[in-house]
């Protein structure tokens, strides 16, 4: 009896330990290179999501890429610049693209400016919020693809629309109350550039200067090389550990000015560096600073 029980127990224990990892398992890496994409372009599981403007997409895009403009994933609502669409709207957008849970979705965008180059991560986070696991960012975006003279197409791609119903997670995002209630208990990462963090500068859409008390500054631009590709995992780890620490289970909330930049580090921390408890505060400083009583540090 004992001889039978022991191997069974070991198998069961292993199953329990590995179950969460299996649930999070990816079939593609969180960041894919242009070479990898070129090799895998004909993989029937692959969907390339080009989030650039329609006008740019029509001028030339990665062959087979579907166009789903960034504005469909984050837009102004209730005075906040980059609000999350309602769940049924996200379902509509994903359905129209013919995307389902089995697909490998590679998000690519325009990297002409820092702000534009942060958009892909926001879309990736939204897809993950809807329950799609195999999401990746194209390293260097469409700019790198074009610079490398890889093939381009001007054909407007359509897929048969599906019926997608998201399995939404409440663990991806934080709202103002969530942050307020946990101040001092969580690690807050302010992902704006240093002068915005210190209050030397501010965006017009943010009512006041400064940052949320206790926040660490980890500018989004630090995640990128000059050519808008991501830094190596070792480099990203060094930056992240300096601001967020080494505890991969620590509760982290990322924020920026209006929820446009902060998804980049949120995605990298979770998907590349293995932090397990990271949330995005989409309303960010645009919302936080509207409250004259909200604590602020300069």
């Amino acid at each position: 009896m004992k001889r039978i029980f022991l191997p069974q127990f070991v198998i069961l224990a292993l199953f329990i330990v590995l179950l969460p990892a299996a649930g999070l398992a990816r079939d593609i890496t969180p960041i894919v290179s242009t070479d990898w994409l070129l090799t895998n372009l004909k993989n029937p599981k692959l969907v390339v999501l080009d989030i650039r403007r329609v006008e740019d997409y029509r001028e030339g895009h990665i062959p087979g890429a579907l166009n789903a403009f960034y504005g469909a994933w984050a837009y102004m609502k209730d005075g906040l610049y980059a609000s999350l669409p309602e769940k049924d709207e996200i379902d509509d957008t994903i359905s129209y693209m013919g995307i389902n849970f089995d697909r490998w979705v590679v998000v690519t965008g325009c990297m002409d400016t820092p702000r534009l180059s942060y958009q892909s991560a926001r879309v990736a986070c939204t897809l993950q919020y809807a329950g799609i696991k195999n999401v990746a960012l194209l390293d260097g975006g469409t700019n790198k693809w074009i610079a490398e003279k890889k093939p381009l197409s001007t054909r407007v791609e359509k897929r048969k629309a599906g019926k997608f119903k998201g399995k939404y997670t409440s663990e991806k995002f934080a709202d103002k109350n969530y942050v307020k209630e946990r101040l001092g208990k969580l690690i807050l990462l302010d992902l704006r550039e240093r002068e915005f963090f210190t209050g030397e500068k501010k965006m017009d859409c943010v009512p006041m200067r400064g940052h949320i008390p206790g926040a660490f500054n980890m500018p989004t631009s630090c995640a990128f090389n000059e050519d808008r590709t991501f830094k190596t995992k070792e480099e990203l780890t060094a930056i992240a550990e300096a601001a967020a620490g080494k505890d991969l289970n620590a509760e982290i909330v990322t924020y920026c000015d209006a929820g446009q930049c902060c998804p980049t580090w949120s995605y990298l921390l979770t998907e590349v560096l293995g932090y397990t408890n990271v949330r995005l505060y989409i309303g960010s400083m645009q919302e936080w600073m509207q409250d004259p009583k909200a604590p602020v540090e300069r």
Binding site: V54, Y57, F69, G71, A72, Y75, M76, P85
Partner: peptide, 18 residues
């Protein structure tokens, strides 16, 4: 139409129409 004025882009633009 493109959403640059604030608000979501027109659904037809989202679907790639000009």
């Amino acid at each position: 139409y493109t959403g640059d004025y604030g608000g979501a882009p027109d659904v037809h633009y989202q679907k790639g129409m000009l």
